Simulated assay, not measured.
Amino acid sequence: MSLSTAVLRIIPGAFILNSGIGKLGLPPEAAESLQGMAVKGVPPLKQLSREQFGKFLSYGEIGVGTALLLLFIPNKIAGLVLAAFSGSLVSMYLRTPGMTESDGVRPTQDGTAIAKDSWLLAIAIALILWRKSK
């Protein structure tokens, strides 16, 4: 594994893992608030109770972060895992009213914090497309 792909995996992996650990035991009210936003990007999440969603979110982030940090997992697999996660975040951003300017892409002040998740999608694509040098 090259240093460049290790960096692409370790830095976001540590961040996502920490975020998931921080959501362990998420209070139901906080889970409900996050679920309200997440449903805009992934509508089937509406079927989960707020407690189920809190666990799903926490364990999901822990799983994504771990997949990135375990460098023996192939880049393509780690990239696909990150793409599923970050793609849902980008979908939520694009579908939530008030997050984008009138063009539907550029972030508003409220959308900037979520628009940055597009960088995770770019990292995922780079990992998926990465080829070993000969």
Rank of each mutant, 00 (worst) to 15 (best):
Thr112Ser: 07
Val39Asn: 02
Ser86Gly: 12
Gln47Phe: 14
Val81Asp: 12
Gly87Ile: 11
Ala124Gly: 13
Ile125Asp: 04
Pro28Ser: 09
Ile73His: 12
Leu3Met: 07
Ser102Trp: 05
Leu24Met: 04
Glu61Thr: 06
Phe85Asn: 11
Gly63Ser: 07
Glu32Ser: 15
Phe56Asn: 06
Asn18Gly: 15
Val42Arg: 04
Glu51His: 03
Thr112Phe: 06
Leu57Phe: 08
Val7Ile: 14
Ala30Asn: 08
Lys116Trp: 03
Lys116Thr: 04
Ser133Val: 14
Phe56Arg: 03
Phe85Lys: 09
Gly20Glu: 01
Ser102Met: 09
Pro43Cys: 06
Pro28Cys: 01
Gly54Asn: 01
Gly54Asp: 02
Arg131Met: 11
Ile11Tyr: 03
Ser49Ile: 08
Phe56Thr: 04
Ala113Ser: 14
Arg106Thr: 07
Leu26Pro: 02
Lys134Asn: 12
Leu57Thr: 01
Gly98Arg: 01
Arg131Leu: 14
Asn18Tyr: 11
Ser102Gly: 07
Glu101Val: 04
Met37Ser: 13
Arg95Trp: 00
Leu70Glu: 07
Glu101Arg: 12
Leu71Tyr: 10
Ala67Tyr: 10
Leu89Arg: 04
Asn18Thr: 09
Gln35Asn: 05
Ser86Phe: 12
Gln35Leu: 06
Ser102Arg: 09
Leu82Ser: 12
Thr5Leu: 08
Met1Asn: 09
Leu17His: 00
Lys46His: 13
Leu127Trp: 11
Gly111Asn: 06
Thr112Pro: 00
Ile125Cys: 08
Gly87Trp: 10
Leu17Asn: 00
Lys76Thr: 15
Ala30Glu: 13
Asp117Lys: 04
Leu26Arg: 12
Ala14Thr: 10
Ile123Cys: 11
Pro97Gly: 03
Thr96Leu: 02
Phe85Cys: 10
Gly65Gln: 07
Leu80Gly: 14
Gly20Lys: 06
Leu70Arg: 05
Leu24Gln: 01
Ala14Ser: 13
Ile10Cys: 07
Ile77Gly: 10
Leu89Pro: 06
Ala6His: 09
Asp103Lys: 04
Leu48Thr: 05
Ala115Trp: 08
Ile128Asp: 13
Leu8Cys: 09
Ala83Pro: 08
Ser102Thr: 14
Gly22Phe: 09
Glu29Gly: 02
Gly20Gln: 05
Val105Ile: 15
Ala126Trp: 03
Ile73Ser: 14
Pro43Asn: 05
Leu57Met: 10
Leu121Thr: 05
Gly41Cys: 03
Lys116Pro: 02
Pro97Ile: 05
Leu127Ile: 13
Leu24Ser: 00
Val42Glu: 08
Val64Gly: 07
Pro27His: 02
Ala84Trp: 13
Ala122Gly: 10
Gly63Asn: 05
